[in-house]
């Protein structure tokens, strides 16, 4: 009920979404702010994506993949829940 009213809640069903954004950022030595400026969103958006609170659109994900120079699958992963 709390999540229903407060956060951006997505029902992923039996799946879990992991992201390795932090790792990729560290490789390029980028802060959240830098990455946000590079792809034209706010820092809070990057923060929410890293925390798994917000699932970005395909467009935004592809922009990130361009910045990192790696395919999308290497920093977003869909795993099945046990």
């Amino acid at each position: 009920m709390y999540q229903f009213f407060i956060s951006n809640y997505f029902d992923l069903g039996n799946y879990n979404m992991k992201n390795m954004l932090k790792v990729e950022r560290a490789k390029l030595n980028l802060t959240q702010e830098d990455l946000a400026k590079r792809i034209g969103v706010s820092r809070q958006t990057i923060n929410s994506i890293e925390k798994g609170k917000y699932i970005p659109s395909t467009l935004l994900t592809l922009k990130m993949s361009r910045v990192f120079g790696v395919p999308v699958n290497s920093f977003f992963e869909l795993t099945e829940e046990d």
Partner: peptide, 11 residues
């Protein structure tokens, strides 16, 4: 808002 991005759109 100041930085109108896709998350703001969702919110």
């Amino acid at each position: 808002v100041k930085e109108e991005d896709e998350m703001i759109y969702t919110i």
